[in-house]
Write a protein that binds this DNA or RNA. Structure first.
Lengths: 210, 210, 210, 210
DNA sequence: AATGAATGAGCATTCATTCAT
DNA sequence: AATGAATGAATGCTCATTCAT
């Protein structure tokens, strides 16, 4: 009993060891720049061992994405579940929450957002693909719920709630990537935080029922 | 003299021949999926010839991006210059204009937006890099001008104009990529146009001075 | 004692379990196409377990060959021992007998004949190698006896009996492989049986003393 | 004109350079033992260059086989065309001719015969496959012609001529492989030549009309 | 101007085999 | 006896890029 469990935990632990290493390497070198050997080395394993834990490079990368995605979803759900916040306040809470996740690991967040849907994410095992889809769906559901409540309360204008959820996410993704682009030209500049703030201010203002 | 000019025109013509071919191949196969040989073949040249016109694969790709970017800038400038439109109307004109460009060549636009700032765009020749920077700057200038005019007229709330320009662009980029992602899961769905519309409606509403 | 024996039998049983599985996998995928993992799975063991019963992949393969070889030898010896057959008739009985074995498991017979002496069969453990050699020797002895009897009786021409044994075997091997080759070009054709018949008719005619 | 031709010849020359190198490496290490790198090195080229001349390892190997096959076919056709030989004599001339080719390059002949129809020879480009098929067909045609002439003249017994051609080839192939096997057990022994002789003596005797 | 020819450098993945448990 | 876990070693093939002609 104890043995079984310990083995399982060990295995899970090593899986994470690999994912951690991969996270760093991918962030540093990009998806195609990173080699399995790099990752293996960083994880203190042999390349072949990586394949005991992940079907292939794509799935390893996708696992990382999924993990990140889940963190985002959690954050959003947390906001959605806060009974003491008004719908307005929930929208206003978004930029801070999203930025917090971004801050944890800027490179990987940027990466996730950029490669949201590259070839790398096609050809995944069905389970992984559906897990990713689930996470995305959860996000949408939460955002829709927040929005519809506001509409029901008469504080938000009535419009397509899923489209709204899309917009909220896209603003975040778009800004992260765009700021990244700009940083490419001039590395000193980093206005992501205030710009995010502004963007969601505008949005929350823009959906208000006058 | 005439000869000189003809030569130049010829050269420019062949450059475009290559870019056209490249555009299709990149769109079809993605950046790393496309090979110089593919492109050369499509352009009816030998691979080596490509290098007479472009320093390397990255620059070829970046040239394409630049071209697309210029089209966007043009469109935006055109809106900015329309004297008969109010500041409000100019903002409202954005989604249609941007979507029009998108429609021209969805794959390449998506591609441009995704790889805005990948490694591919580092290591460019200084000229090309600065040309891209210029185009981006032009876009920002135009958008800033539109916005500041509205602020001056008291119809827009006062906030950082460059941040506003960033947001406007990011919404577009973000939505295009996100819709592309969603299409990856369910190819039938394509709500880019109405969602863009809604997004800019919200924005134009959100920056209005009450 | 009883326990000892039971253990031995069990072990032998599992050995055969593996060999059976291996036979199928090798036949289906060829020697290099087959993986120990494939075989282990088919035998309901883990790969590591295979190595408790066979030194390595080569030996596992060779064990199979040996088994097949023994079947051939048996058949030939059976013919050799039939007192009621004349030397002539014994030669004439060969094609049917050989074909019968072939029929049992065409893929594995073909395989055995093709890889009779590949690298796979070098590096064997001495015991296995000598067992294979023994089987081959037995075959030769039997064939030589048959032939020499015929010579002694004055019905066969006098020639080198071992060479004769070699020829008899080679015709069989050669035809099996050649028919296999031809089947590669046109899978419908399969004339092995009549061609074997004809070949041994010619031989038995050819060695007759006029 | 001269330039074109010289280029072509050069190219052909390098192709042969590679084939020569490959021949040696394949013979020394076997098909799967040989690596492209080995071959490239032996041919004084880079691995990538090999692929300019051959689609892949399989085709390179098959080209070698084809070459060898053509030599065999030539030899046989030469015999078939010799007007001054009787049908009997033609059959009797076979072992010497076949052995002569064998002697040129025993390793490769053995190899060809062993892998006549391995996976390596599947997946070939249609041209190459058909060339090989053609060569085989030519051999059969020649042998059939020889045999049928003998039948027509009343010196050979009447039997299926293609089967006869198959047998003739199979005896050669079978004996070469079998002698190779035996050499594996005891390298000193090499009785291929006399055994071939004997085999075809038996055959020519066996098909004679009494 | 154009290109045929050549290549260096790179890389995901496979698998037989070992060994601690 | 059985195996889960780990790995060393191996390799065809691709492709951007260069350069002599």
């Amino acid at each position: 009993m104890g043995i079984e469990e310990r083995k399982k935990r060990d295995k899970e632990f090593r899986r994470h060891q690999i994912m951690d290493a991969a996270k760093n390497i991918f962030a540093k070198k990009g998806f195609s720049g990173a080699t399995i050997e790099n990752i293996a080395e960083a994880a203190d394993f042999s390349p072949a061992t990586i394949y005991l834990y992940f079907k292939n490079k794509d799935e390893l990368y996708a696992s990382l994405s999924l993990k990140m995605l889940k963190i985002f979803v959690e954050k959003i759900e947390f906001i959605g579940n806060q009974e003491n916040l008004s719908s307005q306040e929930k929208i206003k809470a978004l930029p801070k929450a999203l930025y917090q996740v971004y801050e944890t690991d800027p490179l990987n967040v940027t990466h996730l957002l950029r490669y949201q849907s590259t070839e790398a994410l096609r050809n995944l095992s069905p389970e992984l693909a559906s897990q990713i889809k689930d996470a995305a769906q959860k996000y949408i559901n939460t955002m829709v719920r927040i929005f519809e409540k506001g509409v029901g309360e008469g504080v938000f204008q009535d419009c397509h709630p899923v489209a709204f959820a899309d917009i909220v996410w896209s603003i975040f993704a778009g800004l992260v990537l765009w700021e990244d682009t700009k940083k490419g030209f001039d590395p000193r500049k980093d206005f992501l935080k205030p710009t995010l703030q502004l963007a969601y201010d505008i949005v929350s203002q823009g959906i208000k029922k006058c």
